[in-house]
Design a protein around this nucleic acid. Structure first.
Lengths: 331, 331
DNA sequence: TAAGATTCTGTGAACGTGCACAGTAAGGCA
DNA sequence: TGCCTTACTGTGCACGTTCACAGAATCTTA
């Protein structure tokens, strides 16, 4: 049995296609009589508008694409994505937009994304974890509006974004260590082509000044394993460290393992501070003192920016949200 | 500047629409000369096919919808979803299908999903965490093919699925406890309207027989907090338990916290076994002995089933994959 | 050579919608 | 009464494809 079309509804209601279309699209100029007749016809026939036909003429698709620029293996290691996905689906649904997810971890995937977006198959683009110098940004060019959750390095002024105040968070943790009387404070950063990698280190350095020597700084790639490696390296280079600020909770979990393996007790010998306040922060032992990022608000603001652009807003300023120190037992 | 259409390509290549269309759709009967001319014209014009126009006539959309039936708050607490999403996007992309994500946690959301699917906006449906008695399944009726990752209780024979052998996993853990000489073995289950809730308990009971009394069984809802509560309840009811099998790692992390709070040492006083072998299993202290689910394979098999159905396969049998005991330090 | 098969091509008609436009009826007002 | 506005309705066209069909050109075979 064929799916009912707007014709069938019009026929059943005794009006023309145009009138049904007007009702569907919230036009005024539909008489009360026509309105009830059409509404009845719609529910009787079980009519559902055909998005393909509609978007053929309106040039709108009713969908937004989330582009994940993480390489496949590392994708979703960070539990923070979950919040973003969840909030996005929810808020977009309220506007009757659906969320399409695409990967852009290698050249072939990026090519697919570009085809999709330039082909006009999305009304908006939501960039996630786009690293500095990612060719995708240029390739998307002047398509539909794009925003990012977290700054896109090198494109801060052209791609609006919502983010946590990374620098502030890093300062909060570092100052906390200082206030506690810790003397040899190390840091494990994220990748230096991400805002979280760069700016958390900047905040750390702002507080410590020249005490932040390169011997006290190790780099990770957000994974737990990299945190463990980095911590082990730090302990070898500078065994006398008594605090370490780790740029993510997941890496901090790795650092805890390395410290345990080296026989250091946390927080007595070494204080450990994380970043994110993600779910792992409470499942480690000891639970992590960390910096809370307002993930839900960040996601909400990101979507809000995107919706504003889709609605035709011009230039939009980034939204920077404050972080908060959460004290548990690791520091 | 307008986006080039198949007309423009045809004109540039000096052929007709039909020939271009045939090339695009992999038809034979395109002369080599036409082929190169068209391919050149495509890259010169930057042509990208318009999916809306195509699906208007083919009745196919090129997208698959993943339906998440978890209530909003609990969504993604389980890190296992990540694997499923990741594998799905990847495998679908290889077939040039894109993944749309929708929530179906309440009636309004389910309504939206039904409209979407019945409206013909997806070529396939991927059900996730659909609970027993979910009205969605009936509502979807005879639309496009649907599969599930994990059984849909009450619809096992009509909705194909891939799942871990839940019962086997539960037996493996319980037998391990027994072999270790544990005498009072308790269990914290998942919700009893999910296959993981039901079948893991069945496996547990199969091994212990009448020793699995109701005093030794507590129920959780997969969340860490519920695991903590359930464990506290068990300790109060039967203080002499020396082992507990928790139906998920996340709940096991909660159970560990409750045991620590009660002053019990793990594994000396009480052995703790989890289920999933998810990322939390290694970030807890002590790391969890658990049952590994072959998540990647489950996801792959699920998508494979869906693709087979989309390709026109008839009835398909469920795919049940074996679990494996992973021994760490909690038991 | 004629007839048939094979390979390739172009054309018109759908697919289901929104939008511009023209048109009708009723009401207000001079 | 005649005219203008307001409220509402119907119609034709365009959106960019695919597909069935018919036709042309070339090749095969009796």
């Amino acid at each position: 049995m064929k799916r009912p079309t707007i014709h069938d509804v019009a026929a059943a209601a005794g009006v023309s296609r145009g009138t049904v279309s007007r009702l569907l699209n919230g036009d005024k100029y539909v008489s009360p009589a026509a309105r009830v007749a059409i509404e009845r016809a719609i529910s009787e026939t079980g009519y559902i508008v055909n998005r393909a036909a509609r978007s053929l003429v309106t040039q709108r698709t009713g969908s937004v694409v989330m582009v994940l620029s993480e390489p496949y293996e590392k994708l979703f290691e960070d539990p923070n994505y979950s919040t973003l996905i969840r909030v996005s689906i929810k808020m977009l649904a309220e506007r009757d937009l659906s969320l399409v997810m695409m990967l852009a971890g290698d050249a072939a995937e990026r090519e697919r994304v570009v085809r999709f977006v330039r082909g006009g198959h999305a009304d908006g683009v939501l960039l996630v974890s786009t690293h500095a110098g990612d060719p995708l940004v240029e390739a998307l060019g002047s398509g539909p509006p794009a925003v990012s959750c977290g700054a896109v390095i090198g494109h801060e002024s052209v791609i609006p974004y919502a983010a946590a105040d990374e620098r502030l968070g890093a300062r909060q943790m570092t100052e906390y260590f200082v206030a506690q009387g810790r003397r040899r404070i190390a840091m494990i950063t994220g990748p230096m082509d991400t805002p979280g990698g760069i700016q958390r280190l900047e905040g750390f350095a702002e507080v410590l000044g020249r005490r932040a020597t390169s011997k006290l700084i190790a780099h990770g790639d957000w994974t737990q394993a990299s945190g463990e490696r980095a911590m082990a390296g730090l302990l070898e280079r500078t065994p006398d460290i008594d605090a370490v600020f780790v740029a993510s909770d997941l890496m901090a979990a790795g650092a805890l393992a390395a410290l345990r393996a080296a026989g250091r007790s946390v927080p007595e010998d070494v204080a450990v501070g994380g970043f994110d306040d993600s779910s792992v922060a409470v499942s480690t032992h000891p639970p992590l003192t960390t910096i809370r990022q307002p993930l839900t608000e960040m996601a909400q603001e990101t979507i809000r920016l995107l919706l504003a652009l889709i609605d035709g807003a011009g230039h939009l300023e980034p939204v920077i949200l404050p972080t908060e120190l959460v004290i548990r037992e690791s520091a």
